Amino acid sequence: MIKVDIDTKMKFLHGFSNKTRVQILESIIEDEKTVSEIVDDLNGNQSNISQHLTCLKGCGLIVGRQDGKYVYYRVRNQLVRDLLSMFDVVLEDIQNDIACCENHID
Rank of each mutant, 00 (worst) to 15 (best):
D5K: 07
D7N: 08
K9Q: 07
M10I: 11
K11E: 12
F12D: 08
L13I: 12
H14V: 12
N18H: 12
T20V: 14
T20Q: 11
V22H: 02
L25K: 00
E26G: 03
E26M: 09
E26V: 01
E26D: 10
S27I: 01
S27Y: 02
I28L: 01
I28K: 00
E30P: 00
D31Q: 04
K33V: 00
K33L: 02
V35P: 01
V39L: 05
D41N: 07
Q46D: 13
I49Y: 08
I49T: 09
I49H: 05
S50K: 07
Q51F: 15
H52F: 11
H52T: 01
H52W: 07
T54L: 08
T54G: 06
C55K: 15
C55W: 05
L56Q: 06
L56M: 05
G58N: 12
C59M: 07
G60P: 03
L61D: 03
I62F: 05
V63Q: 03
R65I: 14
D67E: 14
R74A: 10
V75K: 02
V75Q: 01
N77K: 03
D82T: 09
S85N: 14
S85K: 10
M86T: 07
M86L: 13
F87C: 13
F87E: 11
D88M: 09
V89P: 04
V89N: 07
L91S: 07
D97H: 13
I98F: 03
A99G: 05
C100N: 14
C100Y: 04
C101L: 13
E102Q: 15
N103E: 12
H104W: 13
D106L: 14
D106I: 12
D106Q: 12
